[in-house]
Amino acid sequence: MAKPKLKEHIINREWCKGCGICVHFCPKKVLELDDTDKVVAARPQDCICCKLCELRCPDLAIEVIVERQ
């Protein structure tokens, strides 16, 4: 099975409270908090689509969309 390929991170800036959990646990350091303490995908090219950010987000504010194979 081919590795999943990232399409995009959908980040709901209204819902994100900037707790930093997704940033802390991202194994590839893809995510960062911006100046307003909202998460952004700073290095999407490094994303391995493990979706741990999505599962651990307490605000249900981040979604990892994968390319259809």
Partner: peptide
């Protein structure tokens, strides 16, 4: 997100504090 179908989205963002684990429980439940 498929689970959004189960949410009452009009009440979001929710009232829990930043980093509160309860949102993670909601998310995965």
């Amino acid at each position: 997100m498929a689970i959004k179908d189960y949410l009452r989205e009009r009440f979001f963002p929710h009232m829990w504090c930043p980093g509160c684990g309860h949102g993670i429980v909601l998310n995965n439940m």
